[in-house]
Structure formats: C-alpha cells, structure tokens
Design a protein around this nucleic acid. Structure first.
Lengths: 144, 144
DNA sequence: TCATAATTAAGAATGATTCCTGTTTAAAGT
DNA sequence: ACTTTAAACAGGAATCATTCTTAATTATGA
C-alpha cells in the first residue's frame, strides 16, 4: 500500500470509515457507538452496527478518535484527539469537553507516592447540563 | 424496625451482607464482584453471585462501599468510603488507592468555565504495578 | 485488469450485570 | 418466645453493550 491514509499507518479508506470520521468531527458532543450508527446510517443506509463499532475501535487505535468510559453503560467517542477532560450530565448522559488545561503535574506528584509506574490519568466531571438543570427546578418534587 | 444497622438507614443485617462488608474492609485492593464472590464463598459456601452483586449495590447506595468504574470491563468495589482517587495496573487490572489529597478546587475552577452544574469529579491513574513492571523488563521483546 | 488482504453485513456469541420466582430469614410487634 | 411479614435469598433466565464468525464484497498495489 502506498497511500498512507489518515495517519501514516496502513489503513484502508473505506466508505464507512470515511463517513464515520467525518461525522464525528462535525459534532462537539461525544456520542455512543449506537448514536454514531444512527448518524452514519443517514448517509450509508446499509451500514451495520458492527462496522461502526469496529471502525471506531480502529480509528481510536490510530489516534484519530478518543474512546471514553464515563459513568454510564456505553462507551463514548470523541473526534477531538488532543488530551483533555470530559463532563457528563448525570441525568441525560450527554458527554462533552471541559475547557480545563491538562494537569500534567499530578502524574509526577503521584509518581513519588506510589510504586506504580504511572502512564496516564483521566479526569471526568459529572453534573447537570443546562437543560436538565432547568427541568430539575421546574419539576421540583416530582419523581423523574 | 428499631435496629438502625450499619448506617442509620433501614437495612437488614444478613449473613451474606455482614460477611461481604467484613471481607471488603479487610483488603486494601478493590475487587470485582466476582472476586468478592470467591472470597465470600469461603465463609458462606452457598452464597450466589447475584447476592454479592445486590449487596455490593445496596452497600454502595448506603455509602458503606464505593463502586468504581475503571478502564476494564468490570466494576470494582472499595471498602474505604472517604473521597479519594484510584490507580489501576493496565496489565493485571489490580486496582488500589492513590495517596493524593482531593483536588477540591478543580470543581470550582471548572464551574466558571462551563454551563454545567458540577456535582463531582473522578480521577483515575493508570500504569504498571511493581510486579507487572518487572515482567515488562525481564520479558522485553516477548509478546505478552 | 488481477490478485489478495482488508472490510463488510448479518447475525450469533460473549460476558457483566440485572431481573424473576418461589423459598427462607431477620426483626417488629405481640 | 411466637407470629407476621417485608426483605433477602439461591438459582437460573434475561438483558444489553460489545465482539466475533462467516461468506461475500471492495480497495489497493502490482
């Protein structure tokens, strides 16, 4: 293979792969695989969920997508690949970026306090997004 | 019910529940539900995995145990219930406490930079534990 | 254009966790 | 202590996100 697509690694430029990468780069929120499947299906109706999962994995292995584990059942995928932190709404599950600079110093701080060889860390914030916070006020007393 | 067991909440003191809490408090690492099941089985041979799951959930709802999501497939459970951070070995999956004081100020730092109402955050470190780091050196070049 | 290795759709399999059902047990009120 | 009953139990089925399998298709290098 001569075309070193996307990253300089050998990776075939397929229709599904291209659309997945384009679509995830269009949005700032961090969808689940199933949400990506629904988005991609609009442009590629016969795409299968397995293909979406596989390509999101391959793209994340090649550093083109970040794979995030938050406090819900599904993985989330992020088209922004520089290191940064995330926040998730505890009510609706929406997951987004946090504009907080990387705390590079805490790895070294921990390095001195543990026998582990530290490789990286993750920070996740949890709270209520604007929409859910409003519901919370107007719906006070109601069981959600 | 008059006896307000464990926490002041209505919670029955059953054999399984008591043993689960005793055993998780004996260890500093943070086992999965299945690992707890194996430990509890030694004292209560007829215990079922479902009971271990249910009790770990109930205990965590009552603040007697922490339920941790790290970067592997299973949940981990922590008998130490004051807020603190965790580290996981990327190779063997062992999960332990990190002696790093809580960064309370980062919630407020983020509060000013986002429209979310921040409730809490988590920090997880990943690296190699002593044992796995040694293997890594002695086994250099080998596929693990 | 051809060969072939990678990718695909579709659906089966996996694995952690939760749920269901009928039975047992802890504890509240006598 | 005896009774009552809601909670908890064991065992196994169900769920759900994700991964795997297979036979057919496709992108790429020659």
């Amino acid at each position: 293979m001569k075309n070193l697509l996307y990253t300089g690694k050998k990776i075939k430029k397929t229709k599904a792969r291209t659309i997945i990468l384009e679509e995830i780069n269009k949005i700032k929120s961090h969808p689940t695989a199933y949400e990506m499947f629904e988005i991609v299906k609009q442009r590629l109706p016969r795409v299968s969920l397995g293909t979406v999962y596989r390509n999101l994995d391959i793209l994340s292995e090649h550093g083109l997508v970040l794979k995030l584990k938050m406090n819900d059942a599904q993985m989330h995928y992020d088209g922004r690949t520089d290191e940064h932190y995330h926040i998730q709404c505890v009510k609706c599950g929406k997951t987004e970026d946090i504009p907080l600079e990387m705390l590079k110093d805490i790895d070294t701080a921990v390095r001195d306090k543990t026998s582990y060889r530290i490789l990286y860390h993750t920070i996740s914030f949890y709270g209520l997004c604007t929409g859910c916070a409003e519901e919370d006020v107007s719906g006070k007393g109601k069981k959600v």
